[in-house]
Design a protein around this nucleic acid. Structure first.
Lengths: 209, 209
DNA sequence: ATTGACATTGAACATGCGTTCAACGAGCTT
DNA sequence: AAGCTCGTTGAACGCATGTTCAATGTCAAT
């Protein structure tokens, strides 16, 4: 029964959130136009009226994901005054890691898009931007660390340090998602502490679990 | 023109290597039965005569990849006598990282399978096994490190340390593949050295503040 | 030569997908 | 009321895919 119902922006949002629900449940492999349309309670034709193609839907969905409640949502941390920079950075890493592992669905979806981006230029650009934003969140702490020990990090930039943090987290996510039973992120974090903090020194004293 | 030509094992191998060629070129998304059959110079029907289904082909191809020339090929390293364990481990990481980045095609394919494994139990098992083997290669060095500084790594196992190494490498691969221009693995490696090796050559004396 | 096992083919089938489109009707303007 | 705009539908099209199968030719054994 045709007839005007909702203005364009509303319908688009309804469809996008339906698409997200489908993708979170069945991943990108199960994201078909008909499935999304059905989930949104509209016809497949309407979906292609609002989004020019499935490709467009995919891109818009990723965009939507990256702006709604995604990874890059709460990256604004502040240094608790007096904290040594290295502890600050490790705390950020720890927090991000914990946060990431709670969103298995979303992370898996993100990896789906990552793989897609390997072939699809537009999606690749979006994923890149997201990863850059993610990495950049570590830069202030990284900068502080380098500023404190310029000789130790000679020739390296805050970007490099931030990139290593991001790599660690992404690698942990890779392993945890595929095999939660044999990779323990908490222990990985403890290991990182032991590796980075040189030795049982005076000020920073920790109790490994 | 029907007729017997090659014994089963030979045909299977011809088809598998053709499948790999197709997958390396067009990834799993382009790996169709017809494409593989055409690449192998046989009919689609024959392919399903030798492999019971496309699923079977996918699994067998992964198996084939993991045994032919793959990541886990040359993981047997020996400690250059007299090398400090931490340097040994870092050297392994560095070597693996460099090796990995030279095989972009293969790594991308592996990620394709990783994503597939998220849904496909059999493939998941194979990928897990491969990642475990990969991680286990770091264990001897990790064990040596822990044995040298038991108090520093109290409560942690060689597995934990090895897992962190694997995570670092996998995270670096993630970033490099998607954005080679903004992630420099060499600098990441240098950063890791700076982070882990406490300070210029003093044994255990360092005040981080 | 005959037979039988079996590798091999080509065509066909069924399915699911993205996409198109003529028809329709709700709201707005006149 | 009449007409226009445009959101909306349902059916259909075209295509690619995985899969099946009867027919066919080759080889080894008899």
């Amino acid at each position: 029964m045709p007839g005007r119902k909702a203005p364009e922006s509303v319908r688009r949002d309804e469809i996008l959130s339906a698409a997200y629900r489908v993708a979170a449940r069945d991943r990108l492999g199960g994201l078909t136009i008909r499935a999304v349309a059905s989930e949104a309670g509209v016809s497949a034709g309407l979906l292609l009226f609002h989004f020019e193609s499935k490709d467009g839907l995919l891109v818009d969905l990723l965009d939507w994901m990256l702006s709604h409640t995604i990874v890059a949502g709460e990256l604004h941390r502040r240094p608790p005054a007096g904290t040594p920079p290295i502890a600050w950075l490790l705390a950020m890493v720890e927090r991000d890691l914990a946060h990431l592992l709670k969103q298995r669905e979303r992370v898996e979806l993100f990896y789906d898009y990552w793989v897609l981006g390997t072939r699809h230029p537009v999606i690749r650009r979006l994923i890149r931007r997201a990863l850059h934003r993610y990495r950049d969140a570590f830069r202030p702490a990284a900068q502080a660390i380098i500023a404190e020990h310029p000789e130790r990090y000679a020739g390296l930039s805050a970007d490099d340090l931030a990139g290593v943090c991001a790599a660690f987290i992404e690698g942990c996510a890779t392993q945890t998602i595929l095999d939660p039973s044999r990779f323990d992120a908490v222990r990985a974090m403890a290991t990182l502490h032991a590796l980075v903090v040189p030795s049982p020194s005076s000020s920073v004293s920790e109790l490994p679990l």
